[in-house]
Structures are given as C-alpha cells and as structure tokens.
Design a protein around this nucleic acid. Structure first.
Length: 489
RNA sequence: GGCGGCGUAGCCAAGUGGUAAGGCAGUGGUCUGCAAAACCAUUAUUCAGCGGUUCAAAUCCGCUCGCCGCCUCCA
C-alpha cells in the first residue's frame, strides 16, 4: 500500500510516487533568523521531522533540505535596533534555533543552506528570468513579471484579477503590475550589499528558495513544505520563478500544515499572543509537546492551552506507566504453560504495527496512529493483570515484544524515547524535589503503616495514609508490597 | 470585497458513502481492610441548522448560521 498525501496544489490526496524510485527529495521553508522561535515554528519542525522519520521507516531514502533566511527586511531592521550586524543577529538566532531543535529532539536535515551563501546562484537565476522575459529591471531593483507566467495563482487558487480587487495590494510606482514582486532589491545606505549586474543590492525573499532548492534537489523534486501562510505569496512566487526559469514542473507535492492558535486565534507578534519554544519547554517536556502536536492532524489548526498540555502530559504518563510495568515483569516464564491471552487481545497486540502504518499512510494521520498506541496499551494492561502467578513464557514474550514495537513506532513521532522505568523514576524525583518530604521519610511512614495494617490497626494505617496524602504522596498496595507516587497538583 | 478551511459527547479529537476510534474529565463495578493504580462497563439513536441525491450520509450536493485563515511580514 502506498503512502497517500494531500497536495495543496490539487486539493486532494494522491499516492506518493517519488521521481527517483525509493528516494524522496524534500524542501521545507525554514525560519527567518531574527527572533526566538515560537511554538508555531515548533509545530512546523515537528511535523516535517515526523514526515521524514516516517518516510525513512517506510524504507525511503530522504534528502531533506531546510533553509535559513538570513537576509531580509526584518533582519536589517532588528539588527539596526540592536546595534549589531545582520550577520551577527542571524547567526545568533540560528544558533538558538538549533538549541531549540535539539531540545525538541528534531533530527537535523540533510542540508541547511543559507540565503547569503547562495547569492551567486540567485543572481544567475534572476539573469535567466530576465533573459526569458519574465523579469525586468527598474533602477537597481529587479521585478518578476507575473502576467507573463501563465500558471500564476494555480497553487493558491486565485487569479490576478481577484487579487487586484483586494484593497491590500501595495502600490509601487516602479512595478508594471501591482502583483509583481522583487527578485533583487537595490540596497540603501548601511544595508548589507552584494554586487550584481543591477548594481549593489540584495536578494528578494522568494528567490532564495528557488535558487537553493534547484541547487540541491534539481529542477523538479518531490515535496515542498511549509506553513499554510506560505502558500501565498511565497510558494506561489517560488513556482513562478522556478518553472519560469527551468521550463519544467517545480514540485510534485505541496504539503502545508495548519497554525498553532491560542484561544482560536493565530499566534502573531502583532497580537502579542505567541509563546516561544523555550517558554513552553520550561513547563512541559518535549515529548508532552510532541504528543500535543500530534494529537490533531497536521493540516488542522492546533489550539494551545494549559489544559490541552496537561491532558497530553497525562496521556504520556499513561503510556510510560504501562511500559514500565511490563519492564518489571519476571525475566522467565513457565515453559509449556497455557497462554492466558485470548485470541482477540493477541490479535490487537500483533496488529499494532499494521494499524499504525495504515493510519500514517493516510496523509500522516498521527492522531489516529496515537489512538492505536492507547488501544495497545489498554490491551497490554489488561493482559498483564490477567497473568497468573507463573505466567507462560510465550505470554511474557508477547508483552515484551508488544512493548518494544510500541516504543519503536512511537519513536517515529519522537515519543517514548526514554527508558520507561527511568522516566517514571525521574518523574517521581522531579515531583518529589518540590515537596516538603524526603524519600526516606516516606519509606519510614509506609513501613509504620504496614506494621499497623499487620496489626489490623486500620485507623492508624489510614491516618498515616492521609498524612502522606496531605504531602501529595499517594500509596498503592499490591501483593508484592506498597509503592508510592507523587500526586500532581 | 476575493479565495480557502472548520463546526463530531463536559473538553480535545479521528472517521470523508455502509451504520460514531482514541485521549482527558465523570459515573457504576472488579480488586482492596478501606483506598490508589489498573481493568471492565457506562457517557453523542447522533455528527451546527435546513433541504436534496442515494438502498444507505457525519461523510456527496445546495442554502443558512457561527468561527477561523490567506489576500501585507509570518510556521
């Protein structure tokens, strides 16, 4: 069964068929490096990280290019404000971006090219567009002539007439058509400058992606991605540039993910409702954020809230707790003992990977894929509890294999990457650190309570339990002894 | 004004023609001295509303209402 992917350009899903068999070439628009990254950037990084990992898991070789925009109006402005150079500013935020990605566990792309390192390619591309009559020089600027490109508007589903009707198209006396966009901008004093046939200047925003994708992936490649807000004008303009210059189709499949919203509004600087990745990671682990991000389909909006994050944290704990229990099962079972697992449960466990693939093959449906994780965990818990004192070797093996499969699949989403027992212990001690009681005190109170229970002094036993509960310690009696955990909130 | 998307239980969310996944929260039960955890059961005769197509629709079509996004930098 092929992987089916939604293509923005066609507005429908179609099987993914790489141009070069077994090899997917993908380009994703990265950040403009002038500020801290917010959780919208995190979603983008996480979604494409998941896609790359899944494609590799399915046996594809993936060449993944994600660029940095390191020269741009915003960078120039911010650098001036901070009394620094564009180079220093962008290098600083690229470094911070890498830190964020490392903390999120995002695998590095194959290549991370920067616009300023490809000015030569950019100039060559602009020259060929001028030669083909698709671009024109005005003063020290060069503009793309949108009316000369027949397919303009095909990606975003709008026509030049529609857009002219809109009141928000800026009027520029230099442009032949209001929708023409800059390929090259003559520089003003104090701005970073490169020499060009049109005088000193710098690249426009869109041209860098056309130049870099062509250099590393060729005229035509498989997947181009980014946030929904890049559909127009950025990606529309990239198509015009790349296809205009090469005369060949630019991209087979366009993948665009939805926004992160807060109270159902898009995060934006102007609304002041954005949260940086670091702010979120102060409160929640990377895996909690990942579980939250993957709990909805990548094309839908994702509304951030504390309660949504807490739900995600509770869900993650549930998965880890089940795995930790299985890791503590006896090493060896009874050979030849009859299985305590019924056919239905056995099937549920053995079918996990097939169901996961089915969900993910359908346009990377992570929400459905994770539902299968939770169902598998439910079955694992059920089976584990039903195990007799001397469980069959085969049953133990099935549980261990299921747990291993679950972790392997979850790793594609960057989840359950920690050793479950370690995760539970670390969580416990992290919570304990914030409490007014030590582990030794807890242990001694539990010992006292168990003594009381032995003597059937339940009033005293309950008093001790209540005392512990007051200190956020919850206890759990089992045939093998009493364990405890820290109760959140 | 143009274009596009969304509206599924208390909350989040999958399902895009065959009779409503999953998570969080809640309730009842099993277990327990009592609890907790886990498990089992249960929580939408119904998918914003109204029409239409069909043997069959949350899923397709039309209209209405509500929310959001893009058209300007934006993940």
């Amino acid at each position: 069964m092929p992987i089916v992917v939604y293509n923005t350009r066609t507005g429908s899903k179609a099987p993914l068929e790489p141009i070069e068999p077994g090899h997917i070439k993908m380009y994703v628009c990265g950040i403009t490096a002038y500020d801290y990254c917010h959780i919208g950037h995190a979603r983008s990084a996480l979604v494409f990280d998941m896609i790359v990992r899944y494609l590799r898991y399915r046996g594809y070789r993936v060449t993944f290019v994600r660029n940095f925009t390191d020269i741009d109006d915003k960078i120039i402005k911010r650098a001036q404000e901070q009394n620094t150079t564009c180079e220093e500013l962008s290098e600083r935020f690229i470094r911070l971006f890498h830190e964020d990605m490392a903390r999120l566990g995002v695998a590095p792309p194959t290549l991370e090219p920067k616009a300023t390192e490809h000015v030569g390619e950019i100039i060559a591309l602009i020259e060929s567009l001028i030669a083909r009559g698709l671009a024109y020089q005005v003063g020290n600027d060069v503009y793309y002539k949108v009316e000369r490109f027949a397919g303009y508007g095909a990606l975003s589903g709008r026509s030049l007439d529609d857009m002219q009707a809109g009141a928000r198209v800026s009027v520029n006396e230099n442009k032949a058509h209001p929708m023409d966009f800059a390929l090259w901008k003559g520089s003003k004093p104090g701005e970073p400058t490169w020499e060009s046939p049109w005088g000193p200047g710098r690249p426009g925003w869109h041209i860098e992606c056309s130049a870099m994708s062509r250099k590393y992936l060729g005229d035509t490649f498989d997947i181009h991605g980014g946030g929904k807000d890049l559909v127009f004008p950025h990606h529309e303009n990239e198509i015009a540039q790349s296809e205009g210059a090469s005369g060949r189709p630019f991209v087979k499949v366009w993948i665009h993910h939805g926004f992160v919203t807060i109270k159902d509004e898009k995060m934006s600087k102007s609304l002041g409702n954005f949260l940086t990745i670091r702010e979120v990671l102060e409160k929640y682990s990377a895996e909690v954020l990942r579980l939250f991000v993957f709990s909805t389909h990548y094309r839908n909006p994702l509304d951030y809230s504390e309660s949504a994050m807490n739900d995600a944290a509770a869900g993650l704990d549930r998965l880890y707790a089940a795995l930790a229990e299985i890791s503590q099962l006896p090493e060896e079972g009874k050979n030849g003992a009859t299985s305590a697992i019924n056919a239905k449960d056995r099937e549920k466990l053995t079918a996990l990977e097939a169901r996961f693939q089915q969900a993910m093959d359908n346009d990377f449906n992570t929400a459905q894929a994770m539902a299968h994780f939770f169902e598998a965990v439910k079955t694992m818990n059920k089976v584990r509890q039903a195990l007799p004192a001397a469980p069959a070797e085969g049953d133990l093996a099935l549980l261990r294999e299921s747990a291993a499969t679950l972790r392997q699949l979850a790793a594609i989403l960057g989840l359950l990457t920690e050793e479950p027992a370690t995760y539970m212990a670390a969580k416990k001690s992290a919570l304990l650190a914030g409490l007014a009681i030590t582990e030794a005190e807890i242990e001694s109170l539990i010992a006292a309570r168990n003594q009381a229970r032995k003597e059937k002094d339940f009033a005293r036993a309950d008093a001790i339990r209540d005392e512990l509960l007051m200190k956020q310690i919850e206890i759990k009696d089992s045939p093998t002894g009493t364990t405890w955990s820290v109760k959140a909130f």
